[in-house]
Structures are given as structure tokens and as C-alpha cells.
Design a protein around this nucleic acid. Structure first.
Lengths: 410, 410
DNA sequence: ATTCCTTTTGTGAAATTTCACAAAAGGTTA
DNA sequence: TAACCTTTTGTGAAATTTCACAAAAGGAAT
């Protein structure tokens, strides 16, 4: 036994990760996989005798299923792996189809390049075998690095192109598609631009965490990623598994909450433009996404749950109106004057009432008052402002005026 | 008797109408009044022994009360007077306080200059006395004409000024007030501009009928009247007897319906701008009124009951939006496509639903369908368009888009 | 003709909203 | 302080809306 411990079974040249992973299976007698930092599958041993659902899912979709990743985070396993130098035993988690496993991080100068996972059969790995996994991880380093570098070089090439695309540096469609062809880019046939504003500039470390979250979340398929100071731009499609309408919404909430939870990066605001098929419309979609974020700045409560351009509704027109704002609606002036004199709050009440779709109960809840109080107030508002609150056009006019004025004053 | 019949008791020089009216009273033994074409009081006999409420009202307010005029029209009395050359006996109408009367038109070459009214006492006028009234009417002609001319000359002087004012020919406030002073115009301290579009150009005959209606209606106090081709412009204030908010509305409906009923001038459309105190804002108010009329052309049903600028509500912003109309709201496109394929009517349904303040019952009535039908349709609309119909912002956005597009297509 | 799908209408119970009235609370003014 | 006004809250009955379900009607495709 002693003899073997001194001998590194992986001390031979491997052409690629596939060779390595096969060698691991051979040596340990268990199926193994190698993933990159983003849990994208790089290689898996072929003679899979004994695959659990998590492994099958991973292989099929070429990456670790999202729910598995989320669970590994929740259980604190991924952070532990990142910390640890040696292989760790991960107890089975039945409800996500994960059997007993052993894993080790592939690390180069404190930078995580990926992970080796081994599914344990009924016969557990010995202490020595776990030690050998360390050797495998070392061997994997140059192989992983090669892949990473390829990817990086490719990315650097198109970063500039994308930036030009999004800021409208190209004259026409043809110019764009020429470049696309030249750079050998595979462009999606349908895409949407997502934008995230960060509170500080995005550092190298953050970039990695961002990229981690994007590739591990399986709500969207990200095609391109552009970073600029404190701005993150994605060109993505809804993941095939997701319904179009909600895919981006849920990705944005997921992304902002997870980046806060996992990496303590707070105050990230995200949005998306409309979807297009023509890649030259990327700039349009980008600008739409930006418009959403700008409006969210002005109307944080009103647009709290709005992320997609086409959900902006009336706010789409508010800044248009705001630019040519006529005299204040007479009803507003009257109510404002009344409020001032009586220290009441009728204008805000009216605003909330309209916002809640003229629903007394909802509005009363929002305002923390008794329904009858609101009822009374609306009667007063109608009197004071001399308006008919069942007339949509009046209500709309007042509301648009109110919102536009709010925007102007910011 | 024969002798008297040949003798014209009014064949003597009268200095003014007051003298004439006194002479009539003296001769007939009954109180008399002389009105102009617009039933404005020009003179009344002073030794009024026997006044009925209608006479008192006329004298107090310097004109015949509106309800009396309306009734006289309804009963066909005024048209008969206009037709007739001789004095007519008008039976009492108790509910408006009108006792038995005799009246005759003052006519010059088929043009009506005014009327002489005589209140009969218990002793009725003889046939001869009625004949004498004809003489009185003839005597009245030059006296009335003098007044009319004075008024006309004065009017001609300021017509041009008003036109310049309304079309923005003056550089600043001072220039306007200088002119006002020069022309000795009494300007109101609060006014509103009303505009009426006629289907044809306004003829001399129509002008008289218009002026008749305006001065007899006592809903507004008209300060100035401007005519231009097929456009009638009034600068008016609410009549002291009327509440501000509704005065103009009811005048406009009154005017358009009466000018149709009485004079068979159909298709007149009226509107009003906002009220101002600064006379230099007359142009603004005029433009506002014009904007209302233009929008009413585009949205005849939607704005059916809207006459005042401040009732335009959301339509105020529609043409702004229409000028920079972005892509159609995705929900609209979806619903429109569905409609086309299934020959359904969901888009129109949605429009009416929003217009009726999301009130199922009202909207169902408007659409002549069962409430549940509408309920079903709205459920389908929400599904097809992937929208939340309780979200005001979405609804608004869709509605504004719909309206703006409607405007653009006209 | 049959089948399938969508739409319309009817029915009635359950849920919600509206409304009038009373009482209380808070603030201002003489 | 009392008198007055405005606002808030509570109560409960009446009116209205919502919703599920069933049936029927209309079209399109086979």
C-alpha cells in the first residue's frame, strides 16, 4: 500500500480531458466528470456503469442542472470545494437525484478552473484514492487552462465588435453581418438584450462571478456578454425550457438576488429590451433596455416589478409627455391647493387609487387606511377636483400629467 | 270711429324709443316694451301699472328671460311674428308668468329689427288699436336702425383687432392692452374662447340667427364675437347665474341643438378652451378650443360629450404620442393577428372595455353582448395578448397605443 | 355528417363592492 | 371651552360583480 501512495497514477501525458477522465474512472472504478468553473461539462468518462439522475442530466444538457447547482450552494458545498485543497466527500441528496460523490477543485494559483466529480458506488473510495484525486486535479490544470485560453482569446476578438454594434457604430446591416462572418460568430436567430447596472465598476473577480451565474442559470441562453465600467450587457435568448414571456423576467430577478446572496454584490438593477431576429437591431434592444432602467430610476415603486421594455405600458410615453408638459391639469392644481391648505393627502391618494386600477380595497391596503376612508376621500377628490372618476379619459389625463410632472421634477 | 282709424296717432317726431314706448302706453292704456331682434330690452314704458312676472323679469335683466323665449319658440309664436305684418294676439302662458299680450315685429325690408310687446289688461285692445300698433312699428324703424348701426359700427372697429389677437399678431401684452384702450373695449376679467365650426360658410342670414341665439341664451355672457368663413369664435364668460364648470358645456349643446332645431343649420360642432384672466391669453384659449374640435373629428365617439379643453384627458397627449409612435404594442399585434385569423373582434372589445373604465356591465351594454360573453372575451384577450388587465400601466399603454394609432391612420 | 374548437348565453351561488348612517377623532376658531 | 368643520372608522344591508358550470350555437376540418 505504501508503495502505491508514493506513485502518482496520473503521471503520464494526457492529450485532453477526455483521456484524463477515462483514466480516473479506470483507476478509481467510478464514473467521473470534469466541469469548468461554470459547471459546464468538459469531459465525462464513457463506461458509465452507474449513473444517477444528476449525472445523466449533466451529460445530456452538457452542464450541471440548475437545481443541482442551487442546492450545492445552499448546502455550502461549492464554497467548501472552492476553499479546500483536497477532495471532499459529498453526502447524497436524494431529492435532486444526487448520490454519494467525491469532488475536488481544479485550482491554478488560487484561481478555480473547474471541478472533478466522482460518483461513488456502493464501495467507497479509500483514503489513498482520495489523495490520488489531488494528483488528477493537478494534471487537469494545463488541460483546463488551454480550453479557458481559447475561449478568452475568442472573446477578446468580439468584445470590441459587440461594443460597436451596441453603440451604433455600423452604418448598415451588411456591415454588421460582414463582421459577424469575419469573426466566425454564431449569431442567434432570435435574441434580446439585457442590461444590468452595478453600483460600482465591475472588477475582474466580479466578472467571474457574473459569468458563473449567467452560465449556471438555465433560464436563458446567453450568446454574448459585454462589460463596460459598471454596466453588464447580455445578448441572450430564452432557454428552450422556459416560456418566452417570463424567461427574462425571472432571470433578472434570479440574477440580481443571487448575486446579492452569493457574492454580496448589492444594488444591481437589470432590465431587458424587446426581442428581435435581425441582429442589426441589437442596438435598439439595448437602448430599450437602458430606457427601462432609466425609468426605473425615476419610478422605483411604480416599476418595481417591471423589467421588460414591453411591460413599460404607459411609462413609455411619459418622457415624451414630460418634454412638452402643458399647464398642470386644473383638477390637480385644485387638489394640490386643497392639500396644502388642509394638510391633507388627497393627491397622493388619487395617484394610488388610479394606480391600483380604481380598486378601493387594493388602494386602501396600499395606503393603510380603512376602505371607507378611501371611499370618502375619493368622493372628496371628485368634488374638489371637479372630476368624474369613472371617466377613463379624465383619469388617464390626470395620471399621465401626474407622472410626467413627477419625472420632470427629478 | 272712422275718423280715428285714418289718423295715425304716432305721426310726430320721436327722439328715441323711450318716447315712443311711452306714447304707446298712453294711447293704448297698456304697458309696452320694445326689444331688439335678440330680445334685448331697448325701452319700456315707465308708468307700469300692471306688470306680469315675464315683464318684470325682462325689465330687471334687460332682456327677455331665456325660458320665456324658448317657450315662445316652442309654441311657434316667434316664427309667426316674424312672418306676420300685423300685430298678433298671444294668449297667456301661465307657467312662465306670461299674461295675454299683443306683439308686432319691427321690420325694415324684410329684415327684423325688433318687436313691440304690449301687455293687455282685463280690457282687450280693439281692432283699431291693433291697427295703430302697425303705425307704431313703422315709427320705430328709424329709431331701431339708429341703434343697430351704432352697434354695427362699433363692432366693425374691433373685429379686425380680435382677429389679430386670436391669430397671434401682437408681440406682447402691452400692445394688446394698448389697442384695447384705444378701441374703448371693456374686457372681461375672466373669459373663455368658444369655437364653432359650421359645415358651410356663415352667411349674413345665419349670422343674425347665431347672434340671436347667443344673446338670448342666458347660459353665458358673450363679450366678443368673431366670424371667419365657416368658423364662429366667441369670447365669453359663464353667466353669473350658471356654475362655472358646466356653463360652457351646456351652452355648446344648447347652441348646436337649437341652431339645428330652429334654423335647420345642421352639423355645427362646438368647443371651448380653458378660462383665462389675462386677455393676451385669448389666442391660447382659442387654440385650445381648436384642438378640441380637431380631436373630436378624429375621435367622434370617444369625445362625444367632451367640449372643454380640460376634459380632453388623455387625448391631450395622443397627438404627441402619435407623432413619435413606436412599434405597436406586442399585445395589440397578437390580438390583431388572432382577430384576423378567427374573424373575431377582441381588439375592439378590449378598447371598449378599457374605455368603460374596465366595467364589465357598462362595456357589455356598449357592445350589445351578454356580460358573461364579455367576461369570457376579456379572459381570452388576457391570454392571447399575454397581458394583465388589472395592471393599469399595461392597460394604459395599450390604450394610448391604440388611440394614437387610430389618429395616425386618419 | 361528425368531430373539434371557439364563442355565446343562461343560471345561480358566492364574493365583493357600494352606500348610508352613526360615531368618534382631530383640528381650528371665536 | 364650546362650536364647528373635516376626516376617519365601524356597521350592516343592499346592490353589484365575479365565477363556475352547463348548454347551445356557430365554424372549420375531416
Amino acid at each position: 500500500m505504501e508503495e502505491i501512495s508514493h506513485k502518482n497514477p496520473f503521471k503520464k501525458p494526457f492529450f485532453d480531458l477526455k483521456e484524463l477522465v477515462d483514466s480516473i474512472q479506470e483507476h478509481l472504478g467510478c464514473p467521473a466528470t470534469i466541469e469548468d468553473t461554470n459547471h459546464r461539462l468538459n469531459a465525462y468518462s464513457s463506461h458509465g456503469v452507474d449513473a444517477d439522475p444528476a449525472r445523466i442530466g449533466t451529460i445530456i444538457s452538457q452542464r450541471v442542472p440548475e437545481k443541482v447547482i442551487n442546492r450545492l450552494w445552499k448546502e455550502g458545498i461549492i464554497p467548501k470545494l472552492i476553499q479546500s485543497d483536497s477532495a471532499l466527500r459529498i453526502p447524497h441528496i436524494d431529492d435532486i437525484g444526487l448520490r454519494d460523490r467525491v469532488a475536488i477543485a481544479i485550482r491554478k494559483n488560487n484561481e478555480i478552473l473547474g471541478y472533478i466529480w466522482v460518483v461513488e458506488g456502493p464501495k467507497k473510495l479509500s483514503h489513498l484514492q482520495l489523495e490520488h484525486l489531488k494528483d488528477a486535479a493537478v494534471v487537469a490544470i494545463p488541460l483546463m487552462a488551454k480550453i479557458q485560453q481559447n475561449r478568452k482569446r475568442k472573446e477578446e476578438n468580439y468584445q470590441e465588435f459587440l461594443w460597436q454594434l451596441l453603440t451604433g457604430q455600423f452604418k448598415n446591416r451588411d456591415e454588421i453581418y460582414e463582421q459577424v462572418h469575419e469573426l466566425h460568430l454564431k449569431i442567434p436567430n432570435h435574441f434580446t438584450v439585457l442590461v444590468f447596472y452595478f453600483e460600482q465598476d465591475i472588477t475582474q473577480a466580479m466578472e467571474e462571478q457574473i459569468s458563473y451565474l449567467i452560465t449556471t442559470s438555465q433560464k436563458i441562453t446567453n450568446h454574448f456578454l459585454v462589460l463596460m465600467d459598471n454596466e453588464l450587457i447580455l445578448i441572450a435568448s430564452p432557454h428552450p425550457s422556459q416560456s418566452d414571456a417570463t424567461a427574462f423576467d425571472s432571470f433578472i430577478t434570479y440574477f440580481t438576488s443571487e448575486i446579492a446572496n452569493r457574492f454580496s454584490i448589492l444594488g444591481v438593477k437589470g432590465s431587458s429590451g424587446k426581442g428581435y431576429s435581425d441582429f442589426s437591431k441589437a442596438m435598439t434592444s439595448y437602448q430599450e433596455a437602458q430606457k427601462v432602467l432609466e425609468l426605473k430610476k425615476v419610478f422605483p415603486e411604480e416599476l418595481e416589478n417591471v423589467f421588460h421594455y414591453s411591460q413599460l405600458g404607459a411609462f413609455l410615453y411619459i418622457d415624451l409627455i414630460q418634454q412638452q408638459l402643458p399647464d398642470e391639469h386644473p383638477a390637480i392644481s385644485k387638489i394640490r391647493a386643497y392639500d396644502k391648505q388642509h394638510k391633507s393627502n388627497f393627491l397622493k391618494t388619487l395617484e394610488v387609487f388610479i394606480q391600483q386600477d380604481s380598486n378601493m380595497n387594493e388602494a386602501a391596503k396600499k395606503l393603510f387606511v380603512h376602505t371607507n376612508t378611501l371611499h370618502y376621500r375619493m368622493k372628496r377628490v371628485a368634488e374638489i377636483g371637479e372630476i368624474d372618476l369613472t371617466n377613463v379619459h379624465e383619469k388617464l389625463g390626470i395620471y399621465l400629467d401626474l407622472m410626467a410632472r413627477k419625472m420632470k421634477n427629478k
